[in-house]
């Protein structure tokens, strides 16, 4: 066997970013801090976006109204993860796409608060089309994870 180390040189880049928030992002994240889910609406077409979009993608005209959304969503799709991935929670966990109210767009988020603790049972417990509601984190700092996860509505 050849020594694997002689075939490679390891190094790393360290990159730090600070992303500017636009009006839409800032207001949405401030809303999360106050346990509110805000959507951005395009009044003419009536289309609402959560996460908020600065413009309506169909007409390329600006969204112009903020609306507070009811704290309920529907699971568009979901998956249960069995294996550990870097920068992701310890498995098993459920994540999926959640449509808040009549939003044109979905939020990706975790789905928790399940009866099941083994992953096979989680697959059975969750399905697309299921209604969920947010569970808020006690410590919120204006971040998507201010919502701890969504959980099925009893």
């Amino acid at each position: 066997m050849t020594d694997y180390d002689t075939y490679q040189k390891e190094f790393r880049w360290e990159l730090d970013f600070s992303l500017n928030l636009g009006d839409a992002d800032r207001k949405f994240f401030e809303g999360l801090q106050e346990k509110r889910i805000l959507g951005k609406k395009h009044t003419d077409s009536g289309r609402v976006f959560v996460p908020p979009q600065p413009y309506d993608d169909r007409t390329f005209t600006a969204t112009d109204e903020w609306v507070e959304m009811e704290q309920k969503g529907v699971i568009e799709s979901y998956t249960v993860t069995f294996r550990q991935f870097r920068n992701m929670p310890e498995p098993p966990y459920v994540n999926g796409a959640i449509r808040i109210g009549d939003s044109e767009t979905c939020l990706l988020h975790f789905i928790g608060g399940l009866d099941a603790d083994d992953p096979e049972a989680m697959i059975e417990e969750i399905s697309s089309g299921m209604t969920v509601e947010p569970v808020w984190s006690d410590e919120r700092d204006g971040d998507i994870l201010d919502i701890k996860h969504f959980e099925p509505v009893e």
């Binding site: 998956t79 991935f85 089309g129 998507i144």
Partner: peptide, 25 residues
């Protein structure tokens, strides 16, 4: 997208969300 989706998914989920929905529908 770093602020909204990065903390929630990784590459395997890009496939799994489609496959899960396809099976459901």
């Amino acid at each position: 997208p770093p602020l909204y989706e990065k903390p929630i998914i990784s590459a395997i989920h890009m496939g799994a969300l489609y496959a899960s929905k396809y099976m459901d529908v």
